[in-house]
Amino acid sequence: MKRRGRGIASMWYPVGFTVAANPSGAVVKVNEDGTAVVLTGTVETGQGALGVLSQIAAEALGIAPNDIHIVSGDTDTCPMDTGAIASRTTYITGNAIAAAAAEARDTLFEVASQMLGVKTSQLEAKDHKIQVKGFPARSAPIADVALRAHLVNGTPPIGSASWNPPTVPLDPETGQGKPFGTYVYATQIAEIDVDDETGEVEVLRVTASHDCGTAINPMLVEGQIEGGVFMGLGFALQEEILFDKQGRQLNPNLTNYIMPTTLDMPVVESDIVDSYDETGPFGAKAVGEPSLVPTAAAITNAIYDAVGVRITALPATAERVLAAIKAKRAMEQKQIPA
């Protein structure tokens, strides 16, 4: 008989390396027509990082993301970067790009202040214009300002910056210190069916609420959450590398190493918590790794809710769940006085 259960799990997760320096450098060059090129040493690993980074650069320069071209992943042309690891790209590379873009923007402000006859401190970059704060009608198109910077003033708007989260080393005896710049938080709830005759677990839906600071691109955040739930599902129910007694893997192929497919995917209801972190670029933190962290516990807690057995060793395969159900029944029968 199928029994329904629900389980919940919360988590916290840090952004960037543990104490160790993990800097990112960035260069932003504003072209003669007001579009821009960003140089970064990070690499697109499929998560959409370059999209997020172009949105950060665009926001800082007051132009649209499609005005930005990102050059990445080349040690000859790009500044040093610690790379696509530790959920650090948006937060750390993003901060470096925001700072580099602000530097290039300052050059535009210098030029525009002469054109508009105001102090640079009164200017802002918005909607493809450099405009006076509070008086958007008094403005110059960013393309005109950029061209003038290049060809009249002789000050090409180029900014470069690097950023590394401030940390305090951990005391070797007690581990006390400030290992990370910031943390993100999340809660996931799973609803599942357990077949108490076969032990098979079917995950019906997962509600995933994640704090990632400002969502630079909510669509990509949702993509990460769905991907994370998928990985968490495999971790919870299916995936395990098996070794023989001589330390050799028994299932090193996708036939015998079972992992979820799209057909195993539950409905994912993702939610982005309203949040702003003042240390991140435009308030952003991270979402990459954390999206997988609470899934397994939410699922195994739901298994307990459904059939009353506690799975303490992953993965919760049908065999393991059934064995636990049988052991529980045997225990209950023993307790009935003869």
């Binding site: 919360s10 916290w12 290992p179 943390y183 999340a186 709830i189 939610d271």
Partner: peptide
């Protein structure tokens, strides 16, 4: 204060729990 004595900022775990509970219909 975290396990390492770090004072935490932008803590949103309770909000994530509340949102998830509401969205799930717990």
């Amino acid at each position: 204060i975290s396990s390492t004595g770090q004072v935490l900022h932008s803590v949103k775990v309770k909000e994530s729990l509340e949102n998830a509970v509401k969205k799930f219909g717990w």
